[in-house]
Design a binder for these strands. Structure first.
Length: 798
RNA sequence: GCGCAGGUGGCGAAACUGGUAGACGCACUAGCUUGAGGGGCUAGUGGCCGCAAGGUCGUGGAGGUUCAAAUCCUCUCCUGCGCACCA
């Protein structure tokens, strides 16, 4: 009796497919292009992670399914190999990042080739190769020329451990997203990409793209649009004005003081008139020293200093009100100044209590009863206006526009989204292609001089001086100005890894073009990406940056679409004993070990079976045996097949229907259940008809490509199972099989009828009433009503 | 605080527009195979009552709509994720 030997089978087909390049697609001639993209991995030194195997398998099954549906599926793979993670590892091991990365990529490639995926290896992309990052630099220059890249001095987040600045998106709760170290604020001159210019488009398009709700909401929250008004408060006895942004202009009469952020620029102009400047200056110094975490964590206790000698005038009530600086006003949001309405904003309320400032109620929830109680916290809801002069009695929502107009304000929208800070004071990235010339200023490196090659330097460790290690490489820094040919210096910062990954999928189908990043015709044919699968953790990083870059490229005339991915689906996380796998916890599952013990097909299928693909699941060594047993049964099922037509047409067609629909929606767990049910439906003793076996193998092929191929040949086929067309189902067969129709009395199930699905109500009723049990349940009661749902249920109401 | 997702057996989970709750798998029980140690096959496996047929309760909790609710509505509790001194 022969047994399923996955290792042997898999090695054989791996070799065979490699030889005939089974994954190959002719990008030029393809008739039905289908771009099946998965997020390319960062090649860690630990090698392929089960999380990678999970994500890539899910994506590959989809690609294989589409391929059998006669799409020309392009399923590329590459390496996101630049960046701090690679670099930190190299630092720890004392190996140069270039050498380490090359090793990791090699190892990864080897492991990936075992996965039985359709990866298009003739189109591999590696972001660290000069032929790739040449175009990352080109992209930067295009953005620069279009005014979308700029250098500015601004308060930025600095990670003291990674010794570099970070983008807003890479700071989570005041900590470096990479290493968890608390970030500090520094005032530094840095390169930014003007993503905020696209805030509204990034937001609006979210409504039209076919992405999962979670991802769309994460982006929406991140962009964080608030609609409100901009108002100006004159400074008493001066021409100066303090601009504020508020979402509640209806509360304007209740603005009893104002707050400026400690960094507010107006302070310099007011300085001469502030009588307690020393005190104010001291507060500013202290605020500067605080980390963002301190500023937010100590939020309960508000602090501030009044600007003595300064008064502002409330443009509605015309009253003079005091002005403070306090670090609960953020320089980076709105205008950096607020009108404080303590009665209707909790933060202002806390501040007013502490400094005994007047709290004036202007929104009453109980109107027209004028009993507005003393507040123990701010009332932030809607209501009717009181204490607001001619506006008294108006509903707060209506009052917004009217008061704004009255005070000479204008509608305005503010966004949480900040410009994308892309400079990094690190080594392992593409140098930003800019030259500083004493005479000509900031000069972009001409395209013909790209790439600005990253020099191989011995000391690649971050300096902590606020400069990249490249700054100490004289041969790199010193250069000629492209314009005046005089002596000049290069920018020494490198760009963020997320810039590399923001455009990699444009490169994949265009790797043969050496003189341009991508070919317009090729892009038109293959993009936007038909299906993109990746981790949820990139919801506001990669996925947002990518959308921005695509929009920018469109505006620059390079593309005709502005959303890069038609569909995006986030996969879940594979955990071990409920916990996220990590090296420090020692609970990392090594896929190699399981490939060896159970075979790739078993691992692929097990991962897909643990739960819904979008949810992930918990890896268990016990669970995998279920799939192992199943594939063994499939093996004996197929090798014992005998010539002949199916006599289980209804089952075959039902299964085809179920699996086709499940695959379309990435419901792999239930698709596998259906495969199991199909096999279970056949007796183990009798040989199955070859036609039934063929159907099974075709349906199994996307999941367990090696085994399906082996058995396909075993039953005598000479071609490849993967070249078979995906079967269609005929609902005719589904109509011919009897189904179980539920008979209820008063909504409770009292019997089952085996009957054809299209049986009429009358036929079912007659049949049901023949049943003694049903009659008993009805008893002597008259039947008041019957409810009939064809093919489902008949309910007698008595 | 705001937003999103979700609470179903011992466990992972099914149940598409309301229509047999628990498919499929793990684990467990019994029996048969005997190459007994991640082997195969058959049967069983939500709780309670019953030898059984069958009955009855049951999808976080409380109400409601309906012939019929895991699914719809209202309130409420819990868990996970994202954002958060954003004016």
């Amino acid at each position: 009796m022969r047994e399923y030997n996955p290792q042997k089978i898999e090695a054989k087909w791996r070799k065979e497919w490699e030889k005939k390049k089974a994954w190959k697609v002719d990008l030029k001639k393809a008739k039905n292009p289908y771009y099946n993209l998965m997020m390319f991995p960062y090649p860690s030194a630990e090698g392929l992670h089960v999380g990678n195997v999970y994500a890539f398998t899910g994506s590959d099954i989809f690609g294989r399914f589409k391929r059998m549906q006669r799409k020309d599926v392009f399923e590329p793979m590459g390496f996101d190999a630049f960046g701090i993670h690679s670099e930190n590892f190299a630092i720890k091991k004392g190996v140069h990042p270039k050498i380490q990365t090359e090793k990791n990529v090699q190892n990864f490639r080897k492991q990936l080739k075992q996965m039985g995926a359709l990866f298009a290896w003739d189109r591999e992309v590696d972001t660290t190769k000069p032929e790739y990052y040449k175009w990352t630099q080109w992209l930067f220059l295009e953005l620069y020329k279009a005014g979308l890249a700029y250098r500015a001095k601004a308060p930025v987040d600095w990670c003291p451990s990674c010794k570099t600045v970070l983008a807003d998106e890479q700071v989570a709760a005041g900590r470096c997203e990479r290493c968890g170290t608390e970030v500090v604020q520094k005032e530094m001159e840095q390169w930014f990409l003007r993503i905020t210019k696209y805030a509204d488009r990034l937001l609006k398009n979210l409504e039209t793209i076919e992405w999962s709700e979670r991802t769309r909401m994460a982006q929406k929250n991140w962009i964080g649009k608030s609609q409100g008004a901009e108002l100006e408060f004159p400074v008493a006895d001066s021409d100066l004005k303090i601009g504020v942004f508020t979402t509640r202009p209806d509360t304007l009469f209740g603005a009893t003081y104002m707050v400026l952020a400690p960094e507010h620029q107006l302070l310099e102009k007011l300085k001469a008139r502030i009588t307690n400047w020393d005190e104010v200056q001291k507060y500013r110094e202290e605020a500067k020293k605080k980390s963002e975490l301190e500023r937010t964590e100590l939020a309960k206790e508000k602090t501030g200093i009044e600007l003595k000698g300064i008064k502002a005038i409330n443009p509605a009530s015309k009253e003079e009100i005091p002005v403070f600086i306090a670090d609960y006003a953020l320089a980076s949001y709105g205008t950096g100044a607020i009108m404080a309405v303590p009665a209707h904003d909790q933060r202002d309320f806390a501040f007013a209590k502490k400094y005994s400032l007047p709290i004036t109620i202007v929104i009453c929830p109980h109107y027209p009863e004028k009993t507005c109680p003393l507040l123990d916290k701010a009332y932030t809801g809607e209501g009717h206006l009181v204490g607001s002069g001619q506006f008294d009695g108006l509903a707060s929502q209506e009052a917004r526009a009217q008061i704004m107009k009255f005070a000479g304000g204008k509608f305005s929208a503010k966004y949480h989204l900040r410009d994308w800070l892309i400079s990094r004071q690190r080594y392992w990235g593409p140098p930003i292609p800019i030259i500083y010339c004493a005479k000509c200023g900031t000069v972009p490196v001409p395209e013909k001089d790209l790439p600005v090659k990253l020099p191989f330097v011995k000391d690649f460790r971050p300096q902590g001086t606020g400069k990249s290690p490249l700054a100490s490489v004289a041969s790199f820094v010193k250069t000629k100005c492209p314009q005046c040919k005089g002596l000049a210096e290069r920018e020494t910062d490198v760009s963020d890894t997320f810039l590399d990954s923001a455009w990699y999928f444009f490169r994949y189908p265009c790797t043969e073009f050496k003189d341009k990043p991508f070919d317009k015709e090729r892009i038109v044919k293959w993009l936007p990406v038909d299906m993109y699968i990746g981790g949820q953790e990139h919801a506001v990083l990669h996925l947002l940056y990518t959308r921005f870059i695509t929009m920018a490229l469109k505006d620059l005339g390079y593309l005709e679409f502005e959303e890069p991915f038609k569909k995006f689906r986030a996969h879940g996380l594979i955990t071990k004993d409920g916990a996220k796998m990590s090296k420090s916890k020692g609970n990392v599952v090594n896929p190699d070990e399981y490939f060896k013990n159970y075979g790739v097909d078993t691992v692929r299928m097990y991962l897909m079976f643990v739960g819904p693909f979008s949810e992930g699941g918990d890896w268990s060594d016990k669970g995998i045996v279920g799939i192992s047993r199943f594939l063994n049964r499939v093996f004996s099922f197929a090798i014992n097949a005998k010539e002949g037509k199916s006599n289980s047409e209804a089952l075959r067609h039902k299964t085809i229907k179920k699996i086709t629909e499940d695959l379309e929606h990435l419901r792999y767990n239930t698709a596998i259940s259906a495969l199991m049910e199909y096999v279970n439906a056949f007796s183990q003793k009798d040989a199955v008809a070859k036609e039934d076996a063929e159907t099974l193998l075709i349906l199994l092929a996307p999941f367990a490509p090696h085994l399906a191929e082996e058995l396909w040949h075993e039953i005598g086929r000479k071609d490849s199972v993967h070249d078979q067309p995906w079967p269609s189902y005929d609902s005719k067969f589904l109509q011919e099989e009897k189904i179980r129709l539920i008979i209820q009395v008063n909504g409770k199930m009292r019997g089952i009828l085996d009957i054809l699905p299209d049986a009429s109500e009358e036929a079912v009723r007659v049949e049901a009433l023949k049943n003694e049990k049903i009659r008993q349940w009805i008893g002597q009661n008259p039947i008041r009503k019957t409810i009939f749902v064809k093919g489902k249920i008949l309910n007698f109401v008595v």
